[in-house]
Design a protein around this nucleic acid. Structure first.
Lengths: 201, 201
DNA sequence: TTTCTTATGTTAACTAAGTTAACATTAATG
DNA sequence: CATTAATGTTAACTTAGTTAACATAAGAAA
């Protein structure tokens, strides 16, 4: 009978997994529900993925790739160094706000362990590389002294932390961005604050 | 017979819950296991807590309180405004690193919804108040103009975001603090970076 | 073509967890 | 002392992750 064998179950599963994840997050994604929604037996996903972690890994890889692409495209279009850092931060937060579940998946503890999924590790490394290159103006890395390189690295970490913190606090609802302002502008404002300056208040 | 009725099951449960949470995080905390470890029936916890969320809420409340205390004690001991912000950030990250699971519990999405646990909401609000007061020098709030207040608020958000980002990235293993440096100094260094300054590299 | 093998799908079962209902016992209170 | 509220217990229901055993389809090998 012709109801066996869908033709492309793996991709359909991945697609539906994306949908469920977007709506309910990693915890809400249940393999059994996924299978039912796909119209396939509850054990079928195990033929295509290494259990739940396997599916999450696949989704996370795709998410990392999209994330890296978006950062890259911003970095490539801003020549000025400081401006690039700021815009990158805004893009970082932008991705998080537009794809909160994916963002949580790739950074949170629901993410399958990197050392069990080499492709996932590669995707993660690549995303961080994009970030670092953009922040550190790596083109000139060869010319740097060790001290300079350390300074540059610290700048990268500082920039990254700030963007990450804003992203987290916003998607977790702890910070509510003002409604009368573009999200990007709000983020740029926060990134530009210099806490070492006296408060003049 | 005398094996019924422990005497103080609620507190024992809470205590064990703390232990399990510290070791395995919110997801690893299973009510059934908790009950077994406490030597009590698997349904007993439901007599004392409103299900799993109820226990998590109770633990989260305690965590918020400790968090707030630690921040408060730092803030109270540093008079200088800019220095206080920095030290507060370091303390913020310090708490996260020493109590990663608790930190995740109070900020992550495993935290029971604030609107279902009023005491939890109060604990959270209080912690943020401590933070804001310390960052904003609220003693003089009355004297501020609206613009000044907005500026001060933004400074608070910026400081908070940075500390939060560092905390998250460190406890998630994305940033590995240098081994040859005190964690506090490392954090202070990151907080002090001013990304608006030219990179001079 | 026929046969063997591999990929892919199915059913059925096992384990563990959250939760609730129905029942038992204790402690406290009138 | 009798009643009641609090606190435990057992047993059951539901959902989920996972695996084993079996079935079928497709393609390679004979």
């Amino acid at each position: 009978m012709g109801k066996y064998h869908h033709g492309d179950v793996r991709n359909v599963l991945l697609q539906k997994a994306e949908t469920i994840l977007t709506e309910e997050g990693p915890t809400g994604l249940s393999l059994r529900r996924l299978a039912r929604m796909t119209g396939v037996s509850e054990a079928a996903p195990y033929r295509h993925f290494d259990g739940k972690d396997g599916i999450l890994a696949a989704v996370a890889i795709a998410a990392f790739e999209r994330f890296a692409e978006q950062l890259e495209s911003v970095a490539a279009n801003v020549a000025h160094h400081e401006e690039r850092i700021m815009k990158l931060g805004a893009a970082y937060v932008g991705f998080a706000v537009e794809n909160p579940q994916h963002f949580r998946l790739i950074f949170g503890r629901e993410r399958p362990p990197l050392d069990q999924y080499p492709e996932l590790r590669d995707a993660a490394d690549n995303a961080f590389d994009v970030l670092q290159r953009a922040v550190t103006s790596v083109d000139r890395k060869a010319e740097m002294t060790l001290t300079e390189a350390a300074t540059a690295y610290n700048r990268a970490l500082a920039a990254w932390s700030r963007a990450h913190g804003i992203a987290m606090l916003v998607i977790d609802g702890m910070i509510v961005p003002p409604a009368d302002q573009e999200l990007g502008d709000f983020v740029l404002g926060l990134l530009a604050e210099d806490l070492t300056a006296p408060s003049d208040l």
